[in-house]
């Protein structure tokens, strides 16, 4: 049963987020990694590289937006939920409230999406300032939201499964970090050796990177879009199930 119980959970996260935004450290931490990559790969190495007939920055910026949306949607949800569940015990307030597990899921995921979209917006602004070939298309915006949704769901799953806060970093090292590098953020996935390709195509971020760079959805884009939607639904259902089965 989905009720409006998601709203107080979302509101709580937004009240906390507003306070975080007032600290310069938060803004800096959201931007620092993509900006380092932008400077190192885009403005350094990228000046002498052309990919798919255009300059490297035009290729790189959408990848950095996808990566940043993944990192922020995922990390903030996984980390906050895990801390709230294991240390601050504020998650128990949600579980003891007369609302459905799906409501908790929706509230947490929407809050994660806001954080992901916020961090991505900063990269988009930098994209407009540094890359003349960069533009926002309806597909780009749709995929950005879908990517944030998908990884915020994955964040809930990690936040619920991790047995300690250190575990969330382990999950990130095994799944999120490899995805950031091998899923087409910095180079097209067709350049990787054929024996790695099956693994790469299992990674959801690969499909985000495929669709986010397309001007219109062709058959390849459509398949990737379906893969992303399937992942998003799967993660949402599994996350809701974990909340439903919560037992101390």
């Amino acid at each position: 049963m989905i009720t409006s119980g998601w709203y107080p959970i979302f509101l709580r996260e937004m009240l906390l987020f507003r306070r975080k935004l007032l600290r310069l450290g938060y803004l800096f931490s959201a931007m620092v990694v993509p900006i380092i990559y932008l400077i190192a790969f885009g403005l350094g190495l990228g000046r002498s590289v052309k990919i798919e007939g255009s300059d490297y920055l035009t290729f790189l910026i959408p990848g950095l937006v996808a990566m940043s949306s993944m990192n922020n949607s995922y990390t903030w949800v996984a980390s906050a939920l895990n801390l709230n569940r294991l240390y601050f015990k504020t998650f128990q307030i949600f579980v003891q409230a007369p609302i459905s597990p799906s409501s908790i899921m929706i509230g947490e995921v929407l809050a994660g999406m806001v954080k992901g979209v916020f961090a991505s917006s900063l990269i988009i602004i930098i994209g407009f300032l540094t890359s003349p070939g960069f533009s926002l298309t309806p597909i780009f915006i749709t995929i950005l939201f879908l990517n944030c949704f998908l990884f915020a769901n994955l964040g809930v799953i990690t936040g619920m499964l991790a047995k300690s806060h250190e575990d969330t970093a382990t999950y990130s090292n095994f799944f999120i970090m490899p995805m950031a590098f091998f899923s087409g953020t910095f180079f097209p996935v067709d350049k990787v050796p054929f024996f790695i390709k099956p693994i790469i195509y299992v990674m959801p971020l690969t499909h985000t990177n495929i669709v986010i760079r397309k001007a219109s959805v062709d058959s390849e884009g459509l398949i990737s879009l379906f893969v992303l939607i399937a992942y998003a639904i799967m993660f949402f259902v599994y996350g809701s199930m974990l909340i439903k089965k919560y037992n101390e």
Binding site: G5, Y7, P8, I9, L11, R12, L15, L16, R19, F88, K89, T90, Q92, I93, F94, Q96, A97, P98, I99
Partner: peptide, 30 residues
Amino acid sequence: KKRIGVVPQENNLDRELTAYENLLIYGMLH
């Protein structure tokens, strides 16, 4: 859940929110 109130042993207030905000969120949840 509709009938009970709980004061847990471990303090599970949102320490970064105000007293009013803590109760506001709780009231909305219920």
